[in-house]
Design a protein around this nucleic acid. Structure first.
Length: 380
RNA sequence: GGGUCGAUACCAAAGCGGUCAAAUGGGACUGGCUGUAGACCAGUUGGCUUUGCCUUCGAAGGUUCGAAUCCUUCUCGGCCCA
């Protein structure tokens, strides 16, 4: 399922190939976040084309979300369309988050029990139960290719007691997720989806260890590190990664959930992480922050640093500027010849086109950066 | 020419004797966004030697302990009558 192709001489970084039922992906990779089956301003077929144009040797992938798709359009519609791939016209790979993160991000709207969570919809206030089994069931309706087990993350900061509870609940729920997944695919002839477990434990080393040890006794297709980049110091996050990675099986992909900035991704790759997702490139694009290269290559040849700038497109500094957004970028936005002055104008008047052009560019930046990392790792 | 209403910070617009450097919008400027509820949120928007001081509410006078708020004249604008 996962093959390691090469290892970096000066870090734990590795290049590999993850086999899924819908194609293979080269690692390390980044998944754009299409929570509700769209990349907010960009349709999935558009994204597919962009992903392919950046690296044709790997299958495009996006992340989507169980909770959000359950509320709208709902399992029935997803099933009648034959899953999210057909519904959203996405021929690539889909990884679905389990909805566990929404226990945290929508915590004012739910009640936790050992069995699962009762959510109050953020849309109309209606009440819904989400359990490990329901999460699996919904992911089966979405028909995604990589499923995440239903986990519980208490937020940060959290007391040792709260984190302990999140670890034990996450392990219990991981077992239930795994059981459901196994029995579901035993009854179906199609190639099965992968199921990943999620390590919790917050900033407590012994709890991270406990969580990793408990989960790795289970037969997951990959392992995620959850509950990081939520307000803790960056150094704490790196320490947690360094503690957890050696406890995870070498022959399974490692996924750092929700991370992060370009630098954080590089640092995590160096610490042995293979997969990432983050709303940063897309949300920042909508809000006017764009990433640009300062040299032709973003990633340094020794995988030690990145060369880029983060710019505020709304800033007065760009008013009237005829400079290109990013002279080294091949994305639609950059190759169309728009000046920074014009792009600033679009952000300034609040036209949705600004969000679109910015999203295309930032996604290109992130995916190009990952491609460069893979290229560097493949050369060693 | 007569009458009448109005003139407040970048714009619009509250305030109608002290608690006003002046509500609220908009605009502008700065930031922030990390398994996406939120194409959003936050801060600043007269000056300074900033727990306070100075200048400001069309202009000039005046009343008052105290005026953006009351009075007089003027300037400009809207409306009505000639």
């Amino acid at each position: 399922m996962f093959e390691i192709q090469s290892r970096h001489a000066h870090s734990r970084a590795r290049a590999g190939i993850l086999h899924t039922r819908r194609g293979t992906i080269r690692t390390p990779f980044f998944m754009p976040v299409a929570t509700q089956g769209v990349l907010k301003t960009l349709s999935l077929p558009e994204l597919y084309g962009y992903e392919q144009s950046i690296d044709s040797s790997t299958t495009p992938i996006v992340l989507s979300n169980t909770y959000h798709l359950y509320l709208r359009p709902g399992e029935k519609q997803l099933q009648s369309f034959g899953g999210l791939h057909q519904f959203a016209q996405w021929p690539g790979i889909i990884l679905t988050d389990s909805g566990g993160f929404q226990i945290f991000s929508l915590k004012k709207l739910n009640t936790l029990t050992d069995d699962g969570v009762q959510f109050q919809s953020h849309i109309d206030g209606s009440r819904h139960w989400l359990t490990p089994e329901r999460s699996m069931e919904i992911q089966s309706a979405i028909d995604s290719d990589i499923w995440m087990s239903f986990d519980y993350f208490p937020g940060y900061p959290a007391t040792e007691q709260e984190v302990e509870k999140s670890v034990s609940l996450t392990t219990a729920w991981a077992k239930r997720s795994l059981l459901w997944h196994a029995s579901y695919w035993a009854q179906h002839q199609r190639p099965p989806s992968l199921l990943f477990g999620i390590v919790q434990g917050g900033a407590f080393p012994h709890l991270r260890k406990k969580s990793a040890e408990e989960l790795t006794t289970l037969d997951f297709g990959g392992f995620a590190i959850g509950g990081l980049a939520v307000g803790e110091p960056e150094e704490t996050m790196y320490q947690a990664i360094e503690e957890v990675v050696p406890l995870l099986p070498e022959r399974r992909p490692r996924y750092l959930m929700g991370v992060g900035t370009p630098d954080q991704i590089l640092q995590a790759v160096r610490r042995g992480v293979d997969m990432f997702d983050c709303v940063m490139p897309t949300r920042n694009a909508r809000h006017g922050t764009l990433y640009t290269r300062t040299e032709e290559r973003i990633v340094s040849a020794d995988l030690s640093s990145l060369r880029y700038e983060k710019i505020q497109m709304r800033a007065h500094a760009w008013a009237g500027s005829d400079a290109p957004l990013d002279a080294y970028c091949a994305c639609f936005t950059c190759s169309s010849g728009f000046s920074r002055g014009y792009l600033r104008h679009l952000y300034s008047i609040g036209d949705p086109t600004a969000a679109r052009l910015g999203t295309i560019h930032n996604i290109f930046f992130y995916l190009s950066m990952m491609r460069e990392m893979r290229d560097v790792l493949s050369l060693v």
